[in-house]
Amino acid sequence: MSNEAAVVEKVQEVVKAPAEPLLSKRRKKIVSDPLSEDNPITVQVLGICSALAVTVKMEPTLVMSVAVVFVIVFSNLIISLLRNTIPNRVRIIVQLAVIATLVTLVSEVLKAYYYDMFKVLSVFVGLIITNCIVMGRLEAYAMGNKPYDSILDGLGSGFGYAWIILTVAFFRELLGSGSIFDFKIFEAVGWYSFPNNGLMVDPVGAFMVLGILIWVQRTKTGYVEH
């Protein structure tokens, strides 16, 4: 695999004689693809576990999104920088070690400065380690691409994950608790009798919202699974 990657790289280097613009068409595509057409959650169906678990309210979801974007971008960068020195036979372990380090870092910082949120997210921050999106990007992209492109790829996948779970959380909190970021939205507009839907607070609600989201997206993009 690394042989192939090396060859591909050489070819690329020969072809692009003038430096590629920082935001060339190809690079824009790296970021925009995972946002919609190749979304990690709705198309690749990865990272569902945390998408279901943390999306009851907007605030923890936002913290989780930031954490995932941070981990995915920096692990992509680190692995990409090391990609030519990482021994092929232990590469999965190296990837895991890098992810685990970054996740522990996030977890420790949350514990020190955002203790309430640390308690709410508890295990799910730790579970970023096993989030298939992160490892998937490292193995599929960062191992064979340059650092800057890897960062873009990380941003794309990270935000692709983030906007989906934030959308799910938006509907779950709105319908399940009648609030957005704990701000009672229905009471604010004078609708005091708004019935909170208990189903939305349960993981079942996340499945439903996510299902509808995938449906809408696939209708728009015309994506069909083969």
């Binding site: 380090t101 522990t104 870092l105 420790e108 910082v109 514990k111 020190a112 400065y113 203790y115």
Partner: peptide
């Protein structure tokens, strides 16, 4: 090394939070 450094640096803040 990185992990233990983080742990040591953040410990006082975490204790205060607890």
């Amino acid at each position: 090394g990185l992990m233990s450094l983080t742990s040591v640096v953040l410990k006082p803040m975490q204790d205060k939070q607890v």
